[in-house]
Design a protein around this nucleic acid. Sequence first.
DNA 1: CTTTACAAACCGTCTGGTCGGTTTTATATA
DNA 2: TATATAAAACCGACCAGACGGTTTGTAAAG
Lengths: 212, 212
Amino acid sequence: MDNATRSERSRNAALEAAIAIIARDGPGRLTLDAIARESGLSKGGVMHQFRTKEAVLKALLERQMAHFEEFSTAYMAKVSATSPNPNLATQLATVREAATSPNSAALALVAAMVENPSLMALPRGREMERMAAIREEAADPDLAILRWAGAMGLLLSSLFGMSPLSKDEHQRLFARLVDDAQWAGLERPAAKRSAKPAAASAAKAASKRKRA
Amino acid sequence: MDNATRSERSRNAALEAAIAIIARDGPGRLTLDAIARESGLSKGGVMHQFRTKEAVLKALLERQMAHFEEFSTAYMAKVSATSPNPNLATQLATVREAATSPNSAALALVAAMVENPSLMALPRGREMERMAAIREEAADPDLAILRWAGAMGLLLSSLFGMSPLSKDEHQRLFARLVDDAQWAGLERPAAKRSAKPAAASAAKAASKRKRA
DNA sequence: CTTTACAAACCGTCTGGTCGGTTTTATATA
DNA sequence: TATATAAAACCGACCAGACGGTTTGTAAAG
């Protein structure tokens, strides 16, 4: 086996093991020894790939971010032509993806924040860019953010193991969040002037609607 | 000093210390020694009040649940007469309260899930009841849940230290979530029959206002 | 005098990290 | 092609400190 791919396989095995441990035993049980046991590597082997535990967490985070970045850009390419708010659509789809896939890589977030909260700076930065993009394109920025927040609520509360919702409900709620048509009724102007709330902006929104 | 109150003061000091540690250093740094240091008690003293670390976590959780329970019932009493959906209103207000107060007792949740995810069963159970109540009273149950999910998204993402929102934005978004008038435009029937989406159901929802 | 609240030293285990050595792969030379 | 050599991947014993928890002792409350 090629040396580079050997390394990569080991790194991968370690990170997969880490995620499995977090999902099964909780983030508090994520130790270097546990990773070694779970991955089949020796502790020395793990330490050769990651010089410290923080390095593991960082790699986990970056891996997860890269994964969703990829998903995002692919989805974005699909909808950017047809949707009036492709950034929001993409983010909602991405969050749904994260919430749906079992052993979601999003568990990396939990682990990072447990061990070293300052690691959250990276994902937070990325999140800010995305929110800005969502605001930018939205007829009603706050409403767009609230739809995004709704998706995050569904994701995080299930990640926390405290979501009281069934799979079906989850799916249905996400579907509604994604569907622009269902939110067109109450868009409000971007602030600036007062304006009569519902009627005017609703008409405006309806006129530019574009459904698949 | 009375013996009972002496105990209570110690217990309290330990729990306060625990929350301070979680907020400052992250849940991974919450140890019995740290609690002893932070609270001024000796480790023996802490262990006298809580026989195990899990007992600390449990007490922390129960304390937090009791706190928000109290807030909830008080708020509920205020609005139950005037609001068509007092449960939703109360939950939104409670979540806002949790998100707003610094060193939110909600940090107990994070700590619990780190150390022993199964502890989340208690809050999850309580949450299910609340969601059921919200659904019950809502003209458009899914929309109500989504408003609740939005609030949770704002809370949890700031709890995670990954909220990109400013205080002002936070406040404004919560205000909009709470304000029923801003959501009246797009209510949809409780499923059952199909119905023409926006216009018809909006009118219907408006007409039936209060039913309970 | 008994019970309760606390202190402090202590114990076995686990944790993150180090280190010397072994095996596997890559490269150079003949 | 065979061989010597360097470099990378990997192993597993080891270490110091931190961890959850126990034990023993003491002062205050009842």
